[in-house]
Every structure is written in structure tokens, then in C-alpha cells.
């Protein structure tokens, strides 16, 4: 009996060994990617213990003193951190309202436009800014909106007064959504354009026969045709609620608008790379963000799976 089990185990081990040997080149191909994920993602994940410690550079992550939940409690006692959390949610919810529909509207307009040549030229212009970095885009737009920039010069010529667009707390957030649309709406509209292409043309013919006007066709044929794409992209966007567009805000931010513009990412950046950083606290804010992110993503993925029958990742 015992011998038999032993033989079984040995046979299975042999088979496993053979399988592994057979796949040896596959493992070889996996190595660079796996090394990358281990070194740059998994090892840093151990660093989350930092959030429960009072970091001491001399003692390192593991040697530093354990302080329990103290760093997290501090988040909720720090007005700046709370402000950043609130801003993150507010800005992202507003992005859903002011940015998300822009690409859909643009796709519908482009689809209704006549004249293939213009359409192609226009689309070329709309999509271009997507490939530029925020450093470039914000430089170009700040030049345009600066107090001695083109917009203000025109305003003054027309008898108006200069507006300091970039340092006005009331204007900063609308400007955030507008500049994001300026850069990304053309690109974001492509997926809707592509989906519209796949709508059955006979639906339009049937609608015309039924006497539907152009506007009615948009609302009763085109929109329903891209609805599932809209829903999936919307859920995804909700899943990314904690990522408020760090680079854009970082470039456009200045001292005058800090209060309304500071989000979690910029806050972490500021407290980490200032004169006296507290790595333990920074890591705690980071972990707080990561955890909410994780929950939102899992919910988003689950919802999309329910809605479309297949998950986004697997």
C-alpha cells in the first residue's frame, strides 16, 4: 500500500518534471516579463508595511518602528489630506459629467457631417493632441491663456479686461475639464465612431421609410447602437475614480489655486518630496488610495462582466 502511494507520487513527480522540461523554452520566454513584475511591482508591494511604521532611513523599511494604524488616523486629522480626498472625488465626478459625454457628442456630430475631405482633415486635427505629453499641451495652452497671451490680448482689444485664467479658483476646474477635452475628446471619440460603423445600415433605411427625421435617427438608431459601448466605458471611468489625472493637474496647478486643485496624487507628491518627508505617512496615503482603487476596479470589472458577459481583464 505504502509502496504503491510512493510509486504514484513518484510517477506524478516524473510527469510534472517531464511537463516542465517540455515547456522549458516557454519558461525562458516568461523570464524577462516575470522579472519585471517581481522587481518593480511585487517587491514594492512589500513596501506597504511602511504605512504602519515610523520610517527611519537608517533602519530601513523592515527595521523601522511599528506604529499600527497611527499613520492612517493621521490622514483623517490632516486638513490638507482631507481636502485632497474631497477634491479627488469632486473633480472625478465632474469629469464624468463634463468630459465623458464630450467624445460621444463629437462622434455623433462627425458622423452626421457631410464632405469626406473636411471630415478627414478635422479628425486629424482633433486627434493630434492626444499624442503629446501634458508638459507640451499645458505649455501651449498656458501660453494661449496667459495674462499677456492671445485670448487676453483679444479681450483687451475688444474693450474687455484681462482675466487671469490660470490663477482663478473659480475658473481652474472648468479649465481642467476644458483642456482635457481639448487634448483627448478627438481620440476618445474614435471608439464611438468605430462602433457607429458597425450599425446595420438597413436600420437607417427603415427609419427613413417610417418618416424619421435626422435628429430622430440619431436618437433612435445611432445612440442605441453605441449604448453598450457607452455603458462599458462609463463603468470603467467610474472604476478609475481615484486617479484624477495627476500630470494635467500637476502642470496646471499653482499656489493660487492649490486649495481647489490638490488631489491625492499631487498631495502625496508634495508631502513626499518636500524638505522633511514622512515616508510612513506618505505610504499610508498611497495605500489608502490604492485600496479604494482596488475596490472600485473590482466593482467595475464585476459590473461590466454582468453587463456584457465577459470581464475586462480575463
Amino acid at each position: 500500500m505504502c509502496r504503491k502511494v510512493g510509486e504514484n507520487v513518484r510517477a506524478r513527480m516524473n510527469r510534472l518534471g517531464r511537463n516542465i522540461w517540455q515547456a522549458r523554452y516557454i519558461y525562458l520566454l516568461l523570464i524577462p516579463g516575470l522579472l519585471y513584475f517581481i522587481i518593480f511591482h511585487y517587491v514594492p508591494m512589500n513596501g506597504v508595511v511602511l504605512s504602519f511604521k515610523k520610517f527611519n532611513a537608517r533602519l530601513g523599511i523592515w527595521g523601522s518602528q511599528f506604529v499600527g494604524w497611527a499613520n492612517f488616523e493621521r490622514i483623517f486629522r490632516t486638513p490638507d489630506a482631507l481636502n485632497a480626498i474631497r477634491n479627488t472625488f469632486e473633480i472625478n465626478l465632474s469629469r464624468l459629467v463634463f468630459q465623458f459625454p464630450a467624445a460621444i457628442i463629437l462622434a455623433l456630430l462627425l458622423n452626421e457631417m457631410r464632405g469626406t475631405r473636411f471630415k478627414r482633415i478635422y479628425q486629424t486635427v482633433y486627434t493630434f493632441p492626444h499624442f503629446l505629453s501634458w508638459v507640451v499641451v499645458s505649455s501651449i495652452l498656458s501660453n494661449f491663456l496667459a495674462s499677456d497671451g492671445l485670448i487676453n490680448s483679444v479681450l483687451v482689444r475688444m474693450g474687455g479686461s484681462r482675466i487671469n485664467f490660470l490663477a482663478d479658483t473659480a475658473l481652474f476646474r472648468p479649465l481642467l475639464y476644458l483642456t482635457h477635452n481639448w487634448k483627448e475628446m478627438g481620440w476618445d471619440s474614435i471608439i464611438y465612431m468605430a462602433t457607429i460603423t458597425s450599425i446595420d445600415p438597413t436600420l437607417y433605411e427603415a427609419a427613413t421609410v417610417d418618416g424619421a427625421g435626422r435628429l430622430q435617427q440619431v436618437f433612435h438608431v445611432t445612440l442605441p447602437g453605441i449604448l453598450s459601448t457607452i455603458v462599458i466605458l462609463f463603468i470603467l471611468q467610474v472604476g478609475r475614480i481615484m486617479n484624477a489625472g495627476f500630470e494635467q493637474i500637476f502642470y496646471m496647478q499653482n499656489a493660487a489655486v492649490k486649495k481647489v486643485s490638490d488631489v491625492l496624487d499631487t498631495y502625496i507628491y508634495t508631502i513626499t518630496f518636500k524638505a522633511t518627508p514622512n515616508y510612513g505617512f506618505s505610504a499610508a496615503v498611497g495605500l489608502f488610495k490604492s485600496v479604494i482603487n482596488l475596490v472600485m476596479l473590482v466593482i467595475a470589472n464585476f459590473t461590466v462582466k454582468k453587463a456584457s458577459g465577459s470581464g475586462l481583464f480575463v
Partner: peptide, 8 residues
């Protein structure tokens, strides 16, 4: 889904 974050 999850990252160690900027500091780690």
C-alpha cells in the same frame, strides 16, 4: 489592480 504606490 493593486500597486505598492509611489513611495515604496
Amino acid at each position: 489592480f493593486f500597486s505598492g504606490g509611489m513611495i515604496p
